[in-house]
């Protein structure tokens, strides 16, 4: 039996009928055509499918599409605005924080969450923030640099949602 699922993804409203077993990542890729979110494993280790679900980083391969009913999602396609790369995307480019690019959307979304929660992370905070993301090309060195650069260019501009998130949880 299929279920109706209404989501707001990157600011746009979508309505679909889906089978319960459809993974959220497949919903994004197949039904919404948002193929920037990748799949790198089947046991929730690699983090390539990381997206923001109401601002929280989650692995979209570990949720069914039906669970996203009424939620607001941000994927990699929603990061650039007005033809400008998001500062995190720009920093990944500037610092050579990617090679094959396959894990990159997941890292950028994990970084977006990390910086929203903690606008001035230490190197250790950044490493910890990527516990759930695997990269096989870069050795992580330039990914960490990219987040440091992004933190500087963003200048704490995204600090506000973090505070709100912290309050919400307290």
């Amino acid at each position: 039996m299929s279920h109706k699922v209404v989501t707001t993804v990157n600011g746009r409203r979508y309505e679909h009928e889906v089978e319960p077993r459809l993974l959220l990542v497949h919903h994004l890729r197949d039904n919404l055509g948002l193929t920037g979110t990748h799949i790198g494993c089947d046991t929730t280790q690699c983090g390539a499918c990381t997206i923001l679900l109401d601002g929280q980083a989650v692995k979209s391969c570990n949720l069914f599409a039906v669970q996203a009913e009424g939620r607001s999602l941000t994927t990699i396609e929603g990061m650039a605005k007005d033809g400008q790369l998001h500062p995190i995307q720009q920093a990944f480019w500037d610092e050579h924080g990617l090679q094959c690019g396959y894990c990159t959307p997941g890292f950028i979304m994990a970084a977006a969450y990390l910086l929203a929660e903690n606008p001035n992370p230490t190197e250790d905070d950044i490493r910890r923030g990527f516990e759930g993301n695997l990269c096989r090309c870069t050795g992580y060195v330039n990914i960490i640099k990219a987040v440091q650069t992004a933190a500087r260019t963003m200048g704490g501009a995204e600090a506000k949602p973090a505070t709100q998130a912290a309050e919400r949880r307290a």
Binding site: T44, G47, T50, L53, Q56, A57, V58, K59, N62, L63, A110, Y113, L114, G129, F130, E131, G132, N133
Partner: peptide, 9 residues
């Protein structure tokens, strides 16, 4: 436990 993404869910 796990990682950020896991702890969020």
């Amino acid at each position: 436990i796990g990682d950020n993404q896991v702890r969020n869910l």
